[in-house]
């Protein structure tokens, strides 16, 4: 029973604190990006103002199906996050996330406009590019911790990073795609320089867009938490280490975003599959050989 209460507390904490962390990351992104571009930039709380403004706006919708699907995206994103923080099966968490993503792409497809449609096709390609690596990340945790459950992964004697550095680097690589950072921001982008107007989210407006942005904030926090998870072991202090590394990784993402121009989708697909195969694949080969050798 005590366990149950604890779990509910954690989920409640996630629901409330994740947006705070997400807004922090977004603000951090905005400020650092503007500094890198030698401009003043918006205030740190600008993402919060943006979202509030979106929710105050009237929704302009192209069809009701799209609204329902966007809602599905946000609900399932939050649900998957809850599952993760409740200590659930990490593979199932990733499956639930891909279900949420599918809702988003279908929302864009349902709009039936040139840019939305192109955005949805590009998002499918992006999903195809990062999916193998996300699954391998989950498997990586399993191989060094002997369990898919997040609750077991955080109670190890050594952190996962010690055995899976290749997987970690591979994960950081596909994080660029997942966070919609240049050079891999095809389907939609947070920047004004997006080539396809707004791509994926083009026909979504007003408070519906607000719902979508909220979902993306939860997703961002989850993605960065996976980075933290690589560095956690029994020691409570490891959380500090993990968060520090996550912030560093996020900083590198921002720099990458500002330094690299967008590449072609073929390039993204080939490079992310190549990175997955070479870094994570070789990591697995070594781990398996060690496992067999030990027996």
């Amino acid at each position: 029973m005590n366990n149950m209460v604890f779990m509910i507390l954690i989920i409640a904490g996630y629901l409330i604190l994740a947006p705070v962390a997400g807004f922090f990351l977004e603000g951090y992104d905005r400020v650092i990006s503007s500094r890198l571009q030698r401009r003043m930039g918006p205030p740190f709380l600008q993402p919060v103002y943006d979202l509030i403004k979106l929710f105050e706006k009237q929704a302009i919708v192209v069809n009701n199906l799209e609204t329902a699907l966007v809602l599905g995206f946000t609900i399932f994103t939050i649900f998957s996050g809850c599952l993760f923080f409740a200590g659930g099966d990490i593979l199932l968490v990733f499956f639930a996330f891909s279900l949420a993503d599918m809702f988003l792409v279908l929302a864009a497809s349902s709009a039936n406009s040139p840019y939305s449609s192109l955005g949805s096709q590009r998002e499918f390609v992006q999903m195809m590019a990062y999916e193998p690596m996300t699954l391998l990340t989950a498997i990586g945790f399993y191989m060094c911790c002997g369990s898919f459950n997040v609750s077991d992964i955080i109670n190890q004697d050594v952190p996962a990073i010690v055995r899976t550095p290749g997987v970690f680097l591979g994960y950081c690589f596909i994080l660029i795609i997942k966070l919609r950072k240049s050079p891999f921001d095809f389907s939609t982008s947070h920047h004004a320089h997006q080539e396809m107007v707004k791509g994926l989210t083009q026909d979504i407006a007003g408070n519906v867009l607000g719902i979508l942005e909220l979902g993306e904030i939860y997703e961002e926090v989850f993605l960065m938490t996976i980075v933290v998870l690589f560095f956690i072991w029994k020691n409570p202090l490891s959380y500090v280490l993990g968060i520090a590394v996550a912030l560093l990784v996020f900083f590198i993402m921002i720099v990458v975003d500002n330094v690299f121009p967008r590449v072609k989708w073929e390039h993204m697909l080939v490079s992310s599959w190549g990175v997955t195969l070479s870094l994570a694949g070789s990591n697995f080969l070594i781990l398996t050989m060690l496992k067999i050798a030990r027996i």
Binding site: L65, M102, A111, M127
Partner: peptide, 14 residues
Amino acid sequence: MFYWGKWLGKLFAV
């Protein structure tokens, strides 16, 4: 996921 997803997207266009 890619080939099923894009089929599903076709069905869903309103």
